[in-house]
Write a protein that binds this DNA or RNA. Structure first.
Length: 824
RNA sequence: GCGAGAGUGGCGGAAUUGGUAGACGCGCUGGACUUAGGAUCCAGUGGGGAAAACCCGUGGGGGUUCGAGUCCCCCCUUUCGCACCA
């Protein structure tokens, strides 16, 4: 290879290949012709004004390596990218700089495209998408309508954080210490009509499928916890005492409605005999009805106090328990005794039934509450060595192992699990309750009282009620209004534009009103992977044949910060579309792997610390290939790593030596057998490590091979070098293409296959066997690989350095074939 | 509090099923080539010990084993989620 041995200039090489890939559409496969389609999906970025973050580069490079590896294996790889450009991030930034998002976002996207190209990703730019494109969100709106049709979208009042000064809704992130992050006023909760998706109906399936999908365990665990299945019982408590039906201002329920029993959910039905009071959430519908006249003022004051809190501080666990007595009593079905009904904000309306039976003896929160308000505490579970009279010693007894029931009448003496079972059976037999399964997962609120999102495609008509926007009228375009800034009017920005929201009812034609909320960004990203292969279709969200060929996604890699929201919503939407017959699979991603996070010099990267890595600068200085390879080298991909500026030089040196090796390689003579053996071991190691995303060790092995290849300033043989170019290609694609071309190949390296290793070449006939005496390493002996134990021992004893530690009669001799000999 | 993960040289990090701890890289030391080197190449580099012999070493303490970074028990530190979920 004596040809033009110009030195390695990354900038020149990278520009050349990026231009060529673009010109030849090298990364845009013909989707309908692919024989072995492989869909490599990366989590699309939010196009911030700051540009590509190092975390994006890390994640995308890791994806790209896997995708390029699959292509080298002979698959047709589709590696698309797009932009998640709607949402509060973009809107807030636009507000801050005073530029309309419709102007800002295209600029940001343009900058992202430039940066992504420089990284050298194998992206198919012909299928790029943006969630803000009407051609995209038309189908986001269509999906909303599908859920509405299926009865999976509904409207209800729900609490939001409300800033009384800005007169706007705040997300939990915008509430800081109970105050509005912008103006500092105390945040309150308000109840607004919002759209929800019934994801909770899918909880059992979302949970069950986790058992078989090939996802990172950490992600699956996070989803399991989030779905939060718990088994227990629902118990019905009759209301007794003077409070019932005495609330003059409250109309009595219609005759048909059942008596207003209070239903509670508990995971500890075994403690039923210890329930000494009930607690309702402040929002519980029966509160007004059961409150006695004497207690009315106190209860109203408490409800008012609760409403004044924001949703974040309401949930602080370590605050002092507060509550108020309603004046009413219920009957404990087990003891038949009346117990008081309280209201407290530690009970949440959105979990279970919004009411609990309090068992202060065996629940920490109930214990604390009972102590605060002087309510009775009864022991119904006793641990080993305890009995029914054992005092509590200042805390609830929550252990269950080895414990038995006491003060529980005929259930005394049962273990906790047995007690649960028997008491549930009893409840069912007397009609006072039943065993139930509860999930913490609650329905997905998709309404946003904001501007920068897809309008929810619904029209309200005074005569016809809630009407869908007909499919032919989609998309409902987001109007380019100037005053997208929230103001004092107290409504979402679109609600200030009568010319936009006043439309004829699609049913009767009378003047009606559009929904003025937009949908959650997570809805945009819950289906984008379906759109990528179908971006050219404007008459359907996704084509059936195309989708059958390319989906589900073969490999998805992304951050674990999306473990629960994005990845759960995506699974939900896929299941719904599957159930409606649009998809023939119900899990969107065959394989998902969560990558780690990059920190810098031991600390998290942040603007305030001033240690944010700007990818442009590093690519400028070292080249994209070195930058990519270094990012993959600094730690295990699934764990992340510590970015240290000094480290990148080692990787650059490796690429320099690769360049030199190709140019110096001789074509005459024979390759060295020992070097070839190392080469084949390297091929095996890299081939095994890439699928495991063990990129750092794959790179280390290539470096090790490089050291062997060039040891003692030897001149490598072409056969020793050429396969290394292929191995390095997924990591450093530009230099690999260039060197491959310089090696005289007409086809690009990515279409030239992956090197195979020869198993026969991996092992030597003679090995160094480690010899231990009493477990301590004392030396090495050169022996045939399959040496028998006694022969190895004999050989070992000829080494004076070993023999001197060996006693006259060894008790035991252990041979681990191919590894070591231990003489005891 | 609950859940998941992590503690290995000066630093980032290696180490199938228990089988040579510290691969690879950075840094450092010495050398070669050089007018020069922050370029390149070669060699060395866990600690103690004079170079040897040898001893000690994977957060701490126990244990199992011929053999433990790896398995078991207890404890400490730390990162990240979720946080009054009944």
């Amino acid at each position: 290879m004596a040809e033009s041995q110009a030195s390695y200039e990354p900038a020149v090489v990278e520009r050349k290949w990026q231009e060529r890939w673009r010109a030849q559409r090298a990364n845009s496969p013909e989707l309908d012709r692919a024989e072995r389609p492989f869909y490599q999906l990366m989590m699309f970025p939010y196009p911030s004004a700051e540009g590509l973050h190092i975390g994006n580069v890390f994640a995308f490079t890791g994806n790209d390596i896997y995708g390029r590896f699959q292509r080298l294996q002979g698959n047709t790889v589709f590696e698309p990218i797009g932009f998640d450009a709607f949402g509060i991030h973009s809107e807030n930034y636009a507000l801050k700089v005073g530029i309309h998002p419709m102007e800002l976002i295209p600029k940001n996207i343009e900058n992202f495209r430039r940066q992504l190209r420089r990284v050298g990703l194998m992206v198919d730019w012909s299928h790029e998408l943006s969630t803000t494109d009407p051609a995209y969100y038309k189908w986001t709106q269509w999906i909303f309508l599908q859920l509405l049709n299926k009865g999976l979208a509904y409207k209800k009042k729900a609490a939001v954080n409300w800033c009384p000064s800005c007169k706007t809704v705040l997300s939990n992130e915008q509430v800081v210490n109970g105050e509005c992050e912008r103006c500092g006023s105390a945040v309150e909760q308000r109840f607004l009509e919002q759209w929800f998706f019934r994801i909770s109906e899918y909880a059992p399936r979302l949970l069950a499928n986790l058992d078989w999908i090939d996802w990172s365990e950490t992600t699956k665990t996070a989803q399991r916890n989030w779905i939060g299945k718990s088994e227990g019982a629902e118990v019905r408590f009759e209301i007794s005492g003077s409070g019932k039906r005495e609330a003059g201002s409250v109309p009595a329920p219609p005759a048909a409605s059942p008596s207003p029993d209070i239903r509670v959910f508990t995971t500890r039905p075994d403690t039923l005999f210890g329930a000494t009071y009930l607690v309702l959430a402040p929002e519980h519908p029966l509160v007004a009805e059961i409150t006695t006249p004497e207690q009315r003022a106190a209860v109203e004051a408490y409800l008012d106090q609760t409403a004044r809190q924001d949703l974040v501080s309401r949930r602080v666990t370590d605050k002092v328990k507060t509550g108020v007595f309603t004046g009413a009593y219920a009957i404990n079905p087990a003891t038949r005794r009346p117990i008081p009904i309280w209201i407290a904000d530690y009970v949440l309306m959105e979990y279970g039934t919004g009411a609990i039976m309090a068992v202060p003896g065996h629940d920490e929160r109930d214990f604390e509450f009972a102590v605060t308000f002087g309510l009775p505490i009864v022991r119904v579970v006793a641990g080993p060595g305890q009995d029914s009279a054992t005092p509590f010693d200042g805390a609830a007894y929550t252990e269950t192992d080895g414990a038995h029931l006491v003060n529980s009448d005929r259930f005394d003496g049962l273990s906790v699990p047995e007690g649960k079972k028997r008491i549930v059976e009893w409840l069912e037999s007397v009609g006072a309750g039943k065993g139930v399964v509860n999930y913490r997962l609650h329905d997905w609120c998709i309404s946003r009282q904001r501007y920068w999102g897809p309008p929810i495609p619904v029209i309200y008509c005074d005569r016809c009620g809630v009407q869908q926007v007909p499919e032919r009228d989609l998309p409902v375009l987001l109007p380019p209004i100037e005053d997208f800034r929230p103001d004092d009017s107290g409504v979402s920005p679109l609600a200030r534009h009568e010319e936009w929201y006043r439309v004829p009812c699609p049913e009767c034609g009378a003047m009606a009103r559009r929904e003025t909320d937009v949908s959650d960004t997570f809805l945009d990203s819950a289906w984008y992977f379906l759109r990528y292969p179908n971006t050219e279709y404007d008459d359907r969200p996704f084509d059936q044949a195309r989708t059958r060929k390319w989906l589900p996604v073969d490999s998805y890699i992304g951050g674990n910060e999306h473990a629960v929201l994005h990845l759960l919503y995506t699974r939900f939407i896929t299941m719904v579309l599957h159930d409606m017959g649009y998809l023939d699979f119900e899990e969107p991603f065959e394989r998902f792997r969560a990558h780690g996070l990059i920190i810098r010099e031991g600390a998290k990267m942040s603007k305030s610390r001033g240690n944010v890595v700007n990818p442009d600068e590093y690519i400028e200085q070292w080249g994209a290939d070195a930058f990519r390879t270094y990012l993959m080298f600094l730690g295990p991909f699934e764990e992340g790593g510590d970015f240290r500026d000094a480290g990148i030089s080692g990787v650059k040196r490796f690429l320099d030596r690769l360049w030199a090796s190709v140019h110096e390689a001789r074509e005459t003579g024979e390759p060295d057998p020992a070097v070839m053996r190392k080469l084949h071991r390297t091929i095996r190691k890299v081939s095994e490590d890439i699928p495991r995303l063990s990129y750092n060790t794959a790179i280390a092995m290539m470096m090790e091979y490089m050291n062997v290849l060039r040891a003692g300033e030897r001149t490598p043989h072409r056969a020793e070098v050429e396969p290394l170019v292929s191995l390095a290609a997924p990591f450093a694609p530009h230099i690999a293409e260039e060197l491959w071309e310089r090696l005289g190949h007409e086809r690009g390296v990515f279409d030239s296959g992956w090197p195979e290793y020869d198993p026969a070449l991996l092992e030597e006939d003679e090995i160094d066997l480690v010899v231990q005496v009493n477990g301590k390493v004392r030396g090495k002996i050169r022996v045939p690989r399959e040496v028998p134990r006694d022969a190895a021992l004999e050989r070992a004893l000829t080494e004076p350095g070993i023999a001197k530690f060996v006693p006259d009669t060894p008790k035991r001799v252990i041979l681990v074939p191919g590894r070591l000999l231990n003489i005891v």
